[in-house]
């Protein structure tokens, strides 16, 4: 920010502000529309709006299929978050601590999964998991989601570790901490905000992920897969209600992660 207003052109300033508002409007307008229509009593989304109503939420809440999907989604999301954060932490620490032959290849491979098109990933997962008799259940969704979530967790933890004074761990050893104690008393406390952030983000990714889950979930459909089922049957404002709920949940997780991560990097 320039402290002296004379250093800034008012026209450019105004233009940039307008640009930011437009960009956010473009991103959030559809979501906002879905949010508004989820509280609208009319069967079809049209203006003027009908009455304010919670009927679609009641309809969703009374549908056992939705509850089953939500249970699957939440259970899978929590497990995926825990497992992929643990794996991501391990990979990030390996990168931080050790130098070894082929390290660049190791890092490239570890970061690769999210760059693979999800349809290809889903198909490959289905083919592979069915071969080893693991397809069509919750475990298969967990495995597939961990594969795409662990790299995110690694990237987040790695960023935090890169902010650490390289002498910190050696200083702990020097003061009498074994490697495990230094891990527990120095590395984990230092990276804790990133670990929690990674946990939230990987959960959010798993909640929202549709394509791979569609391929491998079989009868244990997660909520996004169920939503597609609803859409294929009929267009109902119930979708708006589910969408709003999932959006709030995911945004909550992502905002939580953002708060944790930005707080600590100010140190």
């Amino acid at each position: 920010m320039s402290a002296n207003p004379a250093n800034r052109s008012r026209l450019v300033d105004l233009g940039l502000r307008a640009y930011v508002v437009l960009a956010f409007a473009f991103v959030f307008a559809p979501i906002a529309a879905s949010f508004v229509f989820s509280f609208n009593s009319d069967r079809f989304p049209s203006i003027p709006l009908g009455q304010m109503s919670l009927q679609w939420y009641q309809a969703v809440a009374s549908d056992p299929l939705v509850w089953e999907g939500l249970r699957n989604t939440l259970g899978i999301g929590v497990i995926v978050g825990l497992v992929s954060t643990a794996l991501g932490f391990g990979a990030a620490y390996t990168d931080f601590r050790f130098k070894f032959f082929g390290k660049q290849v190791y890092m490239a491979l570890a970061l690769l999964p999210p760059t693979i098109p999800v349809v290809i990933m889903g198909l490959a997962m289905l083919a592979y998991l069915s071969r080893i008799d693991l397809s069509g259940n919750a475990l298969s969704v967990i495995i597939a989601h961990v594969v795409i979530c662990a790299p995110f967790a690694m990237a987040i933890v790695r960023l935090r570790l890169s902010q650490m004074d390289a002498d910190l761990e050696a200083a702990a050893w020097n003061l009498g901490a074994s490697e495990w104690k230094a891990m527990a008393h120095v590395i984990v406390p230092f990276t804790l905000p990133a670990i929690l952030g990674a946990l939230f983000i990987t959960m959010a990714v798993s909640f929202d992920e549709f394509a791979i889950a569609w391929f491998v979930s079989g009868l244990n459909e997660t909520l996004p897969v169920k939503v597609l089922g609803f859409l294929q049957g009929q267009v109902s404002p119930r979708i708006n209600a589910i969408g709003t709920f999932v959006f709030v949940l995911s945004m909550g997780l992502v905002i939580g992660a953002q708060v944790l991560l930005s707080q600590k990097s100010k140190e």
Binding site: D165, D167, L168, A170, A171, A172, W173, N174, L175, G176, A177, S178, K181, H185, V186, P189, F190, L192, E267
Partner: peptide, 28 residues
């Protein structure tokens, strides 16, 4: 190993633990 030696060091970077307060650093 380093942790079994009684040879504490004062580092050029000081390497104080930023997530601990002064007392906790000294108690470490």
């Amino acid at each position: 190993p380093t942790w079994a030696r009684d040879t504490p060091m004062v580092w050029q970077s000081l390497a104080l633990f930023p997530f601990l307060n002064v007392r906790e650093n000294v108690e470490f």
